[in-house]
Amino acid sequence: MNVFRLTGDLSHLAAIIILLLKIWKSRSCAGISGKSQILFAIVFTTRYLDLLTSFISIYNTSMKVIYIGCAYATVYLIYMKFRATYDGNHDSFRVEFLVVPVGGLAVLVNHDFSFLEILWTFSIYLESVAILPQLFMISKTGEAETITTHYLFCLGLYRALYLLNWIWRFYFESFFDMIAIVAGVVQTVLYCDFFYLYITKVLKGKKLSLPA
């Protein structure tokens, strides 16, 4: 464990909690892409099946349980409890265009052609593009609630911090995982224009609105 990975995990946890509280407190999931949240639930489910097979640490296990629990709770709030506030018209990204190629790539490019490893690889690839429906929805509505931008900032920051973690581990532990790194770079790059808008607008107290 190193400081980049720990702050990365805490940033990820913060994002998940911010979103859950936003929906729960405002009793509304306006502006939130339910499709992205379903993809994240799939990402955690396929990645954390090793909860059943291997124990790494209390921290590792508890964080995985929290991530999975919050992901499904968020999906439940969006599609069941507050489904009247779900903006399905703007959440129109075709996720099959993500899941099918990612599934094919996971079968072709992986470290080990075993069930759990292919699922892990699928989860890594899927996570790198899972935010696209949410970013697409914001581009369609042309704006995002400030709390939603904080959620996205923490979510984008987490994998950027993981990139620093991988540099650290390469340098100090001479280990690195090309699949996780390449997917992590893609994932972080997808947030770049959002990061620019967040830093130039939201941090200056303005609302995030895109030139529609």
């Binding site: 291997s54 964080m63 470290h111 973690n165 390469f170 280990f175 995982d177």
Partner: peptide, 10 residues
């Protein structure tokens, strides 16, 4: 370098 055998990251 080597690859992680066990995925110890979240």
């Amino acid at each position: 370098w080597q690859r992680w055998s066990l995925h110890d990251e979240l």
